[in-house]
């Protein structure tokens, strides 16, 4: 879902960058106030893991492939949508500058789609579903799928505003492909949370909250 430079006029890229910078500032504020030192290994491992798995495109039929984005995963594990903004921004900076994956002028819009939408949809929907009593892994899988689909819809609207994709065909194709790609997002998100819950249950945000409340 990495939008290349050519897909947006510069002035529109600039607007998305300004909004992204506000969110990045809020993410830095979150890290300064909420990210405790004992979470540093988790942030480093999640960032490296999300980068690695984003390089692993899996086929979803229809002549198309897709990979985990990881915004919902980061937000659920670290217990804040800003954690996703923080981690996805780091990943997108390296992908854009060193590997040409996603543009530089369009890095702002990519941070919004993958970090902000992924993080906020992931975090708040997870709270709703798991709060309603749904199993942790089922909740995580469903919200990760939803975050992927909503980010794809946002991207097709951005492409329609830019005149890159016509609105309806863009929505149909982006929607169709990401309904399938979201299944990858859901399964890997649930699996990664299972692994962390097995190896280091104390690192999961919701467990910390539960312990503090107990």
């Amino acid at each position: 879902m990495h939008i290349p430079d050519a897909f947006l006029p510069l002035w529109q890229s600039a607007i998305y960058w300004i909004v992204a910078l506000v969110l990045i500032a809020l993410a830095l504020k979150w890290a300064k106030n909420e990210l405790s030192e004992d979470k540093i290994p988790l942030v480093a491992v999640l960032s490296a893991g999300i980068f690695a798995i984003q390089a692993f495109n899996l086929p979803v039929a229809m002549g198309t492939s897709g990979h985990l984005v990881g915004g919902a995963l980061a937000a659920i594990v670290l217990g804040s949508p800003y954690a996703a903004v923080f981690i996805l921004t780091l990943v997108l900076i390296i992908q854009g500058i060193i590997f040409g994956d996603g543009g530089l002028t369009t890095m702002g819009v990519n941070i919004l789609n993958m970090g902000v939408i992924g993080g906020f949809v992931g975090f708040y929907e997870y709270k709703t579903l798991s709060g309603a009593g749904l199993n942790r892994y089922a909740s995580a899988g469903i919200v990760a799928w939803l975050a992927c689909v909503i980010a794809a819809i946002a991207a097709s609207l951005e492409m329609a505003i830019a005149g890159t994709f016509p609105l309806v065909p863009g929505l149909i194709a982006m929607g169709t492909y990401h309904v399938a790609i979201g299944v990858i997002e859901g399964i890997i998100t649930a699996a990664a949370i299972y692994f962390i819950a097995t190896a280091r249950p104390d690192l999961l945000a919701e467990n910390v909250t539960t312990e503090a409340a107990a």
Partner: peptide, 28 residues
């Protein structure tokens, strides 16, 4: 452990990742 898992995933990706375009490219 986390870094090793990331490196294993990255190594597998080089050989096994699909060459098909992603969702955005397919839409394009």
């Amino acid at each position: 452990g986390g870094l090793v898992i990331a490196i294993l995933i990255g190594g597998l990706a080089v050989f096994l990742a699909s060459g098909d375009p992603d969702g955005l490219e397919s839409t394009a």
